[in-house]
Amino acid sequence: MTITLSVAVLLAIVLIFLLSDDPGRTIYYFFAGPFINRYYLGNLLNSAIPLVFAGLGIAVAFSSSAFNLGGEGQVYAGALVTAAVCLALPDTNGFIGGIAAVLAGVITGAVLAGISGYFKMKWNTDLLISSFLISAAVVLIVNFLITGPLDDPASSLLATPKIAEQYRLLRIFKPSKLNISIVFSIVAAIAVYTFMYHTHRGYEMRICGLNPDFARYGGVNVNTYLVLPMILSGALHGLGGGLAVTGTHYMALKEFTFGVGWNGIAVALIAKNHPLGVIPAALFFAYLDAGAKAAMLHSDVTFEIAAIIQSVIFYLVTAQAIFSFVKYRQRVS
C-alpha cells in the first residue's frame, strides 16, 4: 500500500508539472490546501461523513456477498424524504421531529434496497441489476419531486425550501459546515463493526454471504440473510442522505448527493469491507477532493485537470485494493 501511494503521489506530481504553469503552487495547494485554514479543514471532514455512511452500507452488503449497486438512489431518496418530513412538520420539537425525519430517510433507503433483496429471495433475481435499476429510476423520481412539487419558488436554486431552524444539527467547527453528525458517523462505524464481528446475527450474515452451503449445513436460515444485508445497507445509505440534509445543506438540492453512492463503493473497496477501515478510507477520499478544490481556487489548474490528477491517485489506490482482494480470494480457494 505504501508503494502504491508513493507511486500515486509521484505520478500526480509529474502530471501537475506537465499541466500546470506554476507547478510549485499547484502542488502546495493540492496536498496542503485542505489544511491551510479552519474552513477547508472542516469542510474536508464534513464531506467525509456521507462517504463513511455509504462506505459502511457497501461494506455490510459486500462482506455478505449482497451486491448493492443502488447506493446512489438510496442516499438521494433518503435525503429527500428527510427534507420532506422536516418541511411537513415545521413546528415540531427539534429533537423528536429531527429523529422522525432522519428515521424516515433511513426507512426509505432500507426499503429501496430491501426490495432487491426480497426479489432475490423470491425469484433469485440478480442483486447488482435490480438494485442498480431501482436506484436509477428513483434518482429521476427524486429529481422530479425536487424540481416540481417540492421546489421552493422563492429561491433560484433547484431545491426544496430550507428546513426549520430546530432541525439543523449543531455546527462544531465554524465557519466550516462540519457538524455533530461526524460523531454519528463514527458511532455508526463502531456499531456496524460490533454487529458484524461480535454478534451471532452478524456472524451468520457474513457466513451466508461467504458460503451459503456451509451456512445451510450449519443450520443457518439462509433466506433471512438474503434480505437483511440489503436492508442494513440501504438503511445506512438513507441515514447518510438524511444527515446530509439536517447537518450540511438544510435542504434537498437537485443531485446534491451526486456520486456519493458510487464513491461509497470505492471507499469500501479501499477499506477492504472492514467497517472501521471505512473511516480512514472516506477521509482519504475527501482529502483528495478537498485538495483538488483548493488547487483550483488558488492555482491555475482547471476543474478537468484537478479531476484527472484526483482520478489517477484514486485509480491506483483502488486497483491496489481490488488486486489484493482478488489475490486473497485466490489464495483461499
Binding site: 457466513i207 461467504l210 458460503n211 456451509f214 449445513y217 486473497y328 480457494s333
Partner: peptide, 9 residues
C-alpha cells in the same frame, strides 16, 4: 471444501 467449511473465513 464447500459444505463442510467456509474457506475465506
Amino acid at each position: 471444501l464447500r459444505r463442510g467449511s467456509s474457506l475465506s473465513s
